[in-house]
Amino acid sequence: MSELLQFFFSGITVGAIYSLVALGFIIIYNSSGVVNFAQGEFVMLGGMSTVFLFNAGVPLAIAAVAAILITCLVGIALNKLAIEPAKGASVVTLIIITIGASIFIRGMAQLVFDKQFHRFPSFSGDDPFLIGGATILPQGVWMIAGAIAVFIGLFVFFTYSLTGKAVLATSNNKLAARLVGISTNMMMTLSFGLSAAIGALAGVLVTPITLTSYDVGIALALKGFAAAILGGMGSPFGALVGGILVGLIEAMTAGYISSEYKDAASFIVILAVLFVMPNGIFGRSTIDRV
């Protein structure tokens, strides 16, 4: 029993990070219809910038906030320089642009930082909590709390604030949104910045446990994308649940079946879910205009 609980804990810890990446995906997807394959690079930038600022003597909390702001600027630059000029391009073209951007950012990181693995100390020490015979690291609690806090924050933002509603209006119908006086370009910039900041936060939270290097982004992006799709692309609640599910599936497969195939398990489940529910678990079915 304690074994199951242990796998459960490690599953939701990793799942929390996948959720954060998935939330980042859907914020950009909702406002612009772009699946941003450079999302994993935001996570990497968040972790790496914190490491280098911290090693330069900046206190950890300030380094983390600065790293999130830096990544936020990179996200905005990505929108302004690569996504906005490509307005109206097809899905495949946009996918390739963002993949190009991710390769570019990785190349820059390799140059500006280095190719080594890095970490910084956990926020509240490394003594694990003992719950029901299983353990969880304090940093794991930080990760789970981070994912839930971001989800609640986004929920409040999109449901109650005027700006949040404007972002949703932009995603729903760009022309109509512009007609009622919403600056759709502004909303896209905002969502790229927000999404980059959430990605960077994930990077800051996960680095003390999994370490970071210039190329950690791509694996996280694939898992986060899978999680977002599993939850039904576009729904924040779906992204949260999708991420946790992918984390749990991986942990259970690694624990009970084979650790070599843990990455395969989540994709098998995703394929199975998509065969039965082509729009994901929480996705709305789409209606085509003919």
């Binding site: 190009g100 570019f104 190349g107």
Partner: peptide, 9 residues
């Protein structure tokens, strides 16, 4: 990597 990414974009 930088050049490859730039060309793609």
């Amino acid at each position: 990597h930088i050049v490859l990414g730039l060309i793609m974009m």
